[in-house]
Write a protein that binds this DNA or RNA. Sequence first.
DNA 1: CTGTGTTGTTAACAACGTTAGATTTTCTAA
DNA 2: TTAGAAAATCTAACGTTGTTAACAACACAG
Lengths: 206, 206
Amino acid sequence: MPTSTRRARERARTRERIIEAALHVLETEGVGALTIRRIATDVEYSAPVVYQHFANKDALVLELVAHGHRLMLTEFHQAMQEPDVDRRMTRVASEYVRFAGEHRHLYQVMNDPVVDADERRRVVQPAIDALQELITTWSAAHDVALADPDQACKILWGTLHGIASLGHLGNVGNDRACRLAEQALHAILLGWRTEATANEQSTKGQ
Amino acid sequence: MPTSTRRARERARTRERIIEAALHVLETEGVGALTIRRIATDVEYSAPVVYQHFANKDALVLELVAHGHRLMLTEFHQAMQEPDVDRRMTRVASEYVRFAGEHRHLYQVMNDPVVDADERRRVVQPAIDALQELITTWSAAHDVALADPDQACKILWGTLHGIASLGHLGNVGNDRACRLAEQALHAILLGWRTEATANEQSTKGQ
DNA sequence: CTGTGTTGTTAACAACGTTAGATTTTCTAA
DNA sequence: TTAGAAAATCTAACGTTGTTAACAACACAG
């Protein structure tokens, strides 16, 4: 039955084309233009064929979200090339905000509260893990014992998202937002370092 | 013409009732349930009367956003009672995240990118100004010369929003998010202080 | 009491997500 | 090669959304 495998391949290909079309519409015209009929006509099908590949619109959108996070993660890996730990952190922070600015609408749906919380946590996890690991090596490099590394990661992640949102909400331009992220990161890391040395001093003193 | 003033009063009252109803639906059932027809039936009118008071749904939603920010500002003023500057900052940070958790859906639409950027900036400004002033008195109290106070304000605002979103996106519980916000704030302020003292040392040294 | 606005309702429009049924196309098997 | 099964696809429709037009009911001024 070689025909069935070909059919499966074609099926998968159409599914992929739908995702690509949806992604293109989203990125170029925003979430408001992302409708089932629009996507279908873009791939030269009628609307119902979309439902042969996705249970509903939310499922398709979730795929876009997952794609977005994979994309962001590759850009992270790019920034991870930097050998110096501090510069690496700075670049990741800057890269996060730059990504949010470059893919405005994609980033928006990536952090839209309407997509299921569990599903979103699932697709974000790899990026979170990358940041977590980066923080660990940073703290090791500077002899900083973080009280709660997981908490530190959440703080950094939240901060980056918040400053990226600042750019999104139109309060500030994107390159400006990148610099803000770097500044924020710098301040937080400096704060953690001084706190650590203060603890060290006090334990040495007793 | 006393009748015309009474009519105007009644008109204003219905407008207010519409806003109240919309707010109630939003807070109790989320943004998905916020439809014109639902609001209209809740105030015992037919749908089109809403359009006698608001140009369209966006205008009504904008009113909710403005209301939300006024509400948040009053909670800020509550927290501002605290005499100690550092504790005041901590309380404001915690209060911000607490508000976001207590009024999930309202906060969500308050920071929804679909509402017009200019309009949103307008309604957020008072709260931003309050934070700006708080930062100024803090920096004065600690002899910390912020390089760019406006930038510092944006960083703090963004950080708070980001960590509040963390709670929103289901990554973390709300009370946990409050503590995260306090930790983040603490780290940033500590970072700024040590940076300032470092600058002071270097200028003294030369 | 009679006309004149204001206020409200009903009915409808286009667009949305989504489903059912019919139809065409594609493959299998005799 | 062709009859029947299966898969793929389309058209048509449903219910809901925001929004508008046309009309009815009411309050008020002369």
